[in-house]
Simulated scan of single mutants.
Amino acid sequence: MDIQKAKQFIISNARPLELAWYRAVFEGGPKGAVVEELKKFQNPDGGFGNALEPDNWNPNSTPITTNDAIIHLYQCGALGEAGNIIEGIARWLKSGDGFDRGQQRWRFAVESSKEHPHAIWWEPGDGKESWNPTVSLAVFLCCVDGGERWKELVREAFSWLESAREVGSDEVKCFMLAHRMMELYGVTDVIDLDKAREAVKRAVGLAVCHEVEKYGVEYVAGPSAFFHEESPYVPEGIEDLVKADLAAIDKLQMEDGGFDITWQWYTPYEQEYKQARDWWRPRVTMEKLGFYLAFNGGESK
């Protein structure tokens, strides 16, 4: 990877939010700048919408977009500096909006998203909800609000993870975030954190794609999908997959220094998809850059 070229692509093309995120994570910039930019995507009800995640232009608050806001805050270390945002998120989550009481899960997709430009996966289906984003949202409430209801949900989630035979990559990332937040907030009365860490590592091993020829070409999860920094969740035996992913990054960096997305929307919003792709590319490039720096010793090709 040409590291400097990747950094310049991000600086030149990122939205103000992602640029502040980049500055905070890679340059030691102010975390408060991320908080201020993130506020622009928060609704009066406390939840998040408004194309924070570029694949979904629904202005209304949704669980998955609110979870994405938490990801932003965690990854740049700003959870402790976002008091008003945190209070709003907790208020919205406790309101029950977007929560399926029958399944006891926050919905991955909501009906109102169909009324706005979106990718096909944001149209609700009839199946059982996964733990994405429920486990990280429940842990968030355990950390900032407490409440036995959320603790029980977290215990159920990690109990399931310990014996799961199949786990989606985005679902695993929610478990990673959940475990990290419990460690960060010192929440030790819900689950055994050491045991849970091993369950997350095992889940990464289940979810990571072993067909290395698909890395960066198809929508599959190589190691770079999970790790954007040194991590305690790297399972044993994936060294060859890491090397393959690093090689794919070297090969697939584009002439402008950035990386492309590997998915289509499969909905009739061609112009909006093009805009979303432009928004996504700096974020994807940040993910590749973080992985490359962590697992390649920071050396460019």
Rank of each mutant, 00 (worst) to 15 (best):
residue 215 Y to K: 02
residue 13 N to I: 08
residue 22 Y to D: 10
residue 120 I to W: 04
residue 63 P to K: 06
residue 231 S to M: 03
residue 224 S to A: 12
residue 160 W to C: 02
residue 259 F to R: 10
residue 258 G to P: 05
residue 238 I to W: 01
residue 53 E to L: 06
residue 272 E to L: 01
residue 212 V to W: 03
residue 193 L to R: 11
residue 125 G to S: 13
residue 146 G to V: 01
residue 256 D to H: 01
residue 289 L to C: 12
residue 282 P to R: 14
residue 189 D to T: 07
residue 254 M to S: 04
residue 178 A to F: 05
residue 55 D to W: 07
residue 214 K to G: 10
residue 194 D to A: 06
residue 188 T to L: 00
residue 298 G to A: 13
residue 232 P to H: 03
residue 253 Q to T: 01
residue 37 E to Q: 15
residue 89 I to F: 08
residue 292 Y to Q: 05
residue 148 E to A: 14
residue 155 R to Q: 12
residue 225 A to P: 00
residue 113 S to R: 08
residue 142 C to M: 07
residue 237 G to E: 10
residue 129 E to H: 13
residue 289 L to A: 05
residue 119 A to E: 09
residue 7 K to V: 14
residue 31 K to G: 14
residue 190 V to K: 08
residue 60 N to I: 00
residue 118 H to R: 14
residue 281 R to F: 00
residue 104 Q to V: 06
residue 264 Q to I: 00
residue 257 G to W: 01
residue 121 W to K: 01
residue 78 A to E: 09
residue 293 L to P: 02
residue 146 G to N: 09
residue 128 K to C: 01
residue 73 L to V: 08
residue 15 R to Q: 12
residue 48 F to T: 02
residue 85 I to C: 03
residue 6 A to K: 10
residue 249 I to A: 14
residue 269 Y to K: 04
residue 82 A to N: 11
residue 83 G to M: 07
residue 205 G to W: 11
residue 160 W to E: 10
residue 25 V to P: 07
residue 205 G to Y: 05
residue 241 L to C: 06
residue 248 A to W: 08
residue 172 V to Q: 12
residue 58 N to V: 01
residue 159 S to T: 13
residue 49 G to C: 06
residue 185 Y to V: 00
residue 279 W to C: 12
residue 20 A to S: 15
residue 230 E to V: 11
residue 267 T to A: 10
residue 60 N to K: 13
residue 274 K to E: 15
residue 91 R to A: 14
residue 267 T to M: 10
residue 86 I to D: 05
residue 286 M to N: 03
residue 37 E to G: 04
residue 37 E to V: 03
residue 104 Q to S: 14
residue 3 I to M: 05
residue 181 M to E: 14
residue 257 G to C: 06
residue 73 L to E: 13
residue 47 G to T: 04
residue 26 F to G: 06
residue 203 A to D: 02
residue 4 Q to C: 00
